[in-house]
Amino acid sequence: MLIQLIYASRSSRVLGPADVKDILGASQRNNTRAGITGALCLNNGIFLQLLEGDRAAVNALYHRLLKDGRHRDTAVLDMSEIPCRRFTGWSMGLIASLESNRQLFLKYSGTADFDPYSMSAVTLRSFFDEILQNVRWLE
Results as ranks from 00 to 15, higher is better:
2 L>H: 10
3 I>G: 06
5 L>K: 05
6 I>Y: 01
7 Y>S: 01
7 Y>G: 02
10 R>S: 10
11 S>F: 05
13 R>C: 11
14 V>Q: 12
17 P>A: 13
17 P>S: 13
17 P>K: 11
22 D>R: 14
23 I>Q: 04
24 L>R: 05
25 G>P: 00
28 Q>P: 00
29 R>T: 09
30 N>L: 13
30 N>P: 07
34 A>R: 14
34 A>P: 02
35 G>Q: 07
36 I>Y: 03
39 A>G: 07
39 A>I: 09
43 N>F: 10
46 I>F: 02
48 L>I: 07
52 E>P: 05
53 G>E: 03
55 R>Y: 06
57 A>C: 11
58 V>D: 03
58 V>L: 06
60 A>Q: 15
62 Y>G: 06
62 Y>E: 06
64 R>F: 01
65 L>M: 12
65 L>V: 15
66 L>G: 07
68 D>L: 08
70 R>C: 06
73 D>R: 13
73 D>P: 00
74 T>E: 08
75 A>V: 14
75 A>R: 15
78 D>E: 08
78 D>Q: 10
80 S>E: 14
81 E>D: 13
84 C>R: 15
85 R>G: 04
87 F>A: 07
87 F>E: 01
92 M>H: 04
94 L>D: 01
95 I>G: 12
96 A>N: 10
97 S>G: 15
99 E>W: 05
103 Q>H: 10
105 F>Y: 15
109 S>R: 03
111 T>K: 14
113 D>R: 13
116 P>S: 08
117 Y>R: 14
122 V>T: 13
126 S>G: 15
126 S>T: 09
127 F>K: 02
127 F>C: 03
132 L>V: 00
133 Q>L: 15
134 N>Q: 14
136 R>V: 11
